[in-house]
Design a protein around this nucleic acid. Structure first.
Length: 823
DNA sequence: AACTCCAGCCACTT
DNA sequence: TGCAAGTGGCTGGAGTT
């Protein structure tokens, strides 16, 4: 039979010792389809140089005899082929060794220990990845498929009878559909409310499900409500059964939660266990699987379970204003909507009349989650299509994994054998090999400047990699016909690295990404919509992560030499650009990595653009310097020590009155809102009006309010985050103390949890800040001295210093030295 | 007890 | 394990006077 088909979720199973893939998806009538298929399973043995044909043939014969009988499986080498391949850009002769079961490839590889074999590769890819590479059945792409309908068939042990889908098809062949129609997936968001954050301590009170024209809250805590979407069951056990029943009935492609890998799905699973029932959510009636690891991932067979927080974290967090990734803040930023007001309490303490609000609250969380999914769906779709991994992985992978997947799915064009993942030993070695010298930061000259210009390099690291053909594979000792890096000093030894001019697959692939980035950016500008934006953004993210990937210890194509060469070029180009601009008699104020800011000294904008063009004419390859903007004013301050200009800290106002504040306390979460807002205000007064006097008056006013206790406590909360488990801290900082306090009160504290506290008055002798910490709900008077000395003054002091105003003297009175001065 | 110095830490910028 | 290095500036603790 033939049918249209769009692959969504990939899974695999073993049948009679062989591997098969189940690909779940839809046809155009929205019927749920599962395709069963398989692909060749093999690894590569790269032969040493100059192995004769005779020896090769003998080796092939030897390898063909390999048989394994481990882990209850019988695997053997089924055939061996001889191929001309590339490995890291070099031509090699390699044996393609086909085996019975993918899970045994590693063991087969370790059986091949002939001295003729240089390296063994390609045994460490996921089976699903291998399948997609081999069969080119790409996720979220429309196909016409041809195959055999399995209906009450005995094939694969009667698989088709277990699967809750409309059609099970054994795939024969497929072709890509010319017209790639938009696919709107069937989505369902869910959220739980529980009596505890730990499944061992509390029951699930209710859950909500929200899909298109579908809203439901199910609870066993019966109370009056007008909301017709709320239904009741008898107890938690029935609630769990209802969850499974409703999800199955709805049959979503994507089941979406927020933080659900860590909370909702494991909670459901644990409570099912407690109630001694199964949770057969899978299309094959299997229970969800929570994979262990540093980060949990909840997988449901046949339904793509998405934990949105993860995708937002990797793909979006860097561009976001929100200070945490809580559902509430993220919804505010992206949806202009927020969670419903409801103070969560233990169910025993919830008043009868409040339950209806709790139901609403629960429902709205799923509404927000679904809306966020819809917001990010274009991005998930484009990332999936570009990288060619299932959305399940795409939504959870970090940046390095994304770029690596892109590489693996594109190696074939270059006839490349994939490099292996580093072993734990190699990772350890890489981590201990020390860092490389990073970029150059120009020490700014503190002051308020007028008529500024900023230039910056477009995708600097990436364009350097492309222009100088830098990568693990192109690194060479041959100085002829090579690009030479600037001199690099490490451990007192000076050296240069060389990279062959013959283009390598890594820089070429990166060039492809780089050019697509440009192309889709143009397309987006010409035709702005969510899809063109998402496509442009996906290539931007991939392009920007390339250098980080090369220097990442877990990368297959890690190269310390490449990374240090790239950064040496970065320093060189920045310094050269600064010199060239100075030669034109402009005063350079600041520069960091890929940017230069200077005053234009009455030069016209036209002249500046001419200068830019001239600078660009001298640049090699795809390197490009662009005009970031013209700025009316810009402010740089000294460091706290007061002598030198502070790097990574400045404020600018463009000619269109757009204010850009970098590094100042204003943008730092670990300063209290009062200090941040006051600093922001005075920066604005200075930038917009150039009026430091008005700014001074404003600060005096605030200082008075602090002294007279007119400041609201919310304005004084200091936020921070735990970056590791409490026990691992060597230093007992205020954050750690606050976290411990929270824990004592039964508030769960995990890595990444936001910690919030304020500094209170204290009668004891201690001078330590940590002894004065109060949590937001602990009543006390705020510590006037602390907020003046450690928050307010430090945040504005250096700004006024630029105008030769000593704020400390003004507010304290010149001669007072002791702290009594404030009263 | 009061000081200096810096490790440890977090949140930034690029 | 899950992209990099450079920077500012706080806090607490060790060491010194």
């Amino acid at each position: 039979m033939e049918m249209e088909f769009i692959p969504i979720d990939y899974d695999y199973f073993d049948y009679e010792g062989r591997n098969y893939v189940k690909v779940y998806g839809r046809n155009k009538e929205y019927k749920k389809i599962c395709i069963i298929d398989s692909c060749p399973i093999y690894l590569w043995a790269i032969l040493k140089d100059g192995v004769t044909e005779k020896l090769t043939k003998e080796l092939v014969k030897e390898i063909e005899t390999i048989k394994l009988d481990t882990k209850g499986r019988k695997t053997k080498v089924e055939k061996v082929e001889i191929h001309e391949k590339n490995f890291l850009g070099k031509k090699v002769k390699a044996l393609k060794i086909f085996a019975t079961n993918h899970k045994d490839l590693q063991d087969v590889a370790s059986q091949i220990d002939s001295p003729l074999v240089d390296k063994r590769r390609g045994y460490d890819l996921n089976y699903v990845t291998t399948y997609i590479i081999e069969k080119k059945l790409y996720p979220l792409t429309w196909y016409k498929i041809f195959g055999e309908l399995l209906h009450n068939s005995n094939e694969f042990g009667g698989m088709d009878q277990i699967l809750n889908v409309d059609f099970v098809i054994k795939l024969n062949r497929k072709k890509i559909e010319k017209k790639q129609e938009n696919f709107v997936p069937k989505t369902l968001a869910y959220d739980l409310e529980t009596d505890s954050l730990k499944p061992e301590n509390g029951e699930i009170l209710m859950f909500s499900l929200v899909g298109k024209n579908y809203k439901k809250v199910v609870s066993w805590k019966k109370s009056k409500t007008d909301n017709k979407n709320v239904v009741f069951v008898e107890n938690e056990k029935e609630l769990l059964k209802k969850f499974v029943e409703l999800v199955k009935e709805y049959s979503p492609d994507f089941l979406i939660g927020y933080n659900s890998d860590h909370f909702d799905l494991p909670f459901l699973k644990e409570r099912a266990k407690k109630n001694k029932i199964k949770l057969p959510l899978g299309i094959d009636n299997s229970d969800p699987k929570i994979s262990r690891g540093k980060t949990l991932a909840g997988k449901i067979s046949g339904i793509t379970h998405i934990d949105l927080i993860k995708f937002i974290r990797t793909a979006y967090a860097q561009y976001m204003q929100s200070e945490t990734l809580s559902l509430n803040e993220v919804s505010k930023e992206f949806l202009n909507d927020a969670k419903k007001d409801f103070k969560i309490k233990h169910s025993s303490k919830i008043e009868e009349k409040s339950w209806k609000n709790y139901y609403e609250y629960n429902l709205h969380d799923s509404v927000l989650t679904l809306k966020l999914f819809e917001k990010f769906w274009p991005d998930l779709l484009e990332f999936t299509k570009i990288i060619k991994e299932p959305t399940f992985e795409i939504s959870r992978n970090g940046l390095s994994k994304q770029i690596e997947s892109y590489l693996l799915h594109n190696l074939e064009k270059y006839n490349e054998i994939p490099e292996k993942r580093p072993t734990n030993n190699e990772i350890g070695f890489r981590q201990n090999s020390g860092g490389v010298e990073g970029a150059f930061v120009y020490e700014p000259k503190p002051g308020l400047y007028k008529e500024l210009v900023m230039f910056d390099f477009t995708s600097m690291h990436t364009s350097i990699i492309i222009s100088y053909n830098i990568s693990k594979g192109t690194l060479t000792t041959n100085k002829k016909n090579s690009y030479e890096s600037p001199e690099i000093e490490k451990d007192g030894i000076k050296k240069k690295y060389y990279f062959a001019k013959e283009p390598g697959f890594f820089p070429l692939l990166l060039k492809e990404i780089f050019e697509k980035r440009k192309q889709y950016k143009k397309e987006y500008k010409k035709n702005p919509n969510v899809i063109t934006k998402a496509r442009s953004n996906a290539f931007k993210v991939l392009s920007a992560s390339a250098h980080g990937y090369i220097g990442f210890y877990g990368a297959r194509y890690y190269s310390l030499e490449s990374s240090s060469a790239i950064l040496a070029f970065v320093r060189q180009f920045n310094k050269e650009t600064i010199e060239k601009i100075e030669k034109k008699k402009h005063k350079v104020i600041y520069g960091d990595t890929d940017s230069v800011a200077f005053t234009r000294n009455e030069s016209s904008k036209k002249e500046i653009k001419k200068l830019l063009k001239k600078l660009n004419d001298d640049l090699p390859g795809v390197m490009h310097l662009e005009l970031e903007d013209f700025f009316k004013r810009g402010l740089w301050v000294t460091t706290r020590s007061g002598k030198i200009g502070a790097k990574k800290k400045y404020a600018l106002i463009s000619e269109n009155d757009i204010i850009k504040i970098r590094g100042f306390e204003t943008v730092r979460r670990d300063w209290c809102p009062l200090a941040r807002k006051t600093q922001d205000k005075i920066l604005r007064l200075i930038l917009i009006e150039g009026n430091e006097k008005k700014a001074l008056e404003y600060v005096k006013e605030i200082i008075n309010k602090i002294k007279t206790r007119e400041i609201k406590k919310e304005e004084l909360m200091i936020k921070s985050q735990l970056k590791k488990p409490i026990a691992e801290y060597k230093a007992i900082s205020p954050t750690v103390v606050a976290a411990k306090k929270m824990k004592e009160k039964g508030i769960p504290v995990n890595v990444g949890s936001p910690i919030e506290y304020y500094i209170a008055e204290y009668n004891g002798k201690s001078k330590l800040v940590r002894d004065k910490i109060k949590l937001p709900d602990e009543k006390n008077k705020y510590n006037i001295e602390y907020y003046l000395e450690k928050q307010m003054l430090p945040s504005v002091e250096n700004i006024f210093q630029v105008f030769n105003i000593n704020i400390k003297e003004i507010t304290e009175g010149k001669k007072q030295e002791k702290l009594g001065k404030w009263f």
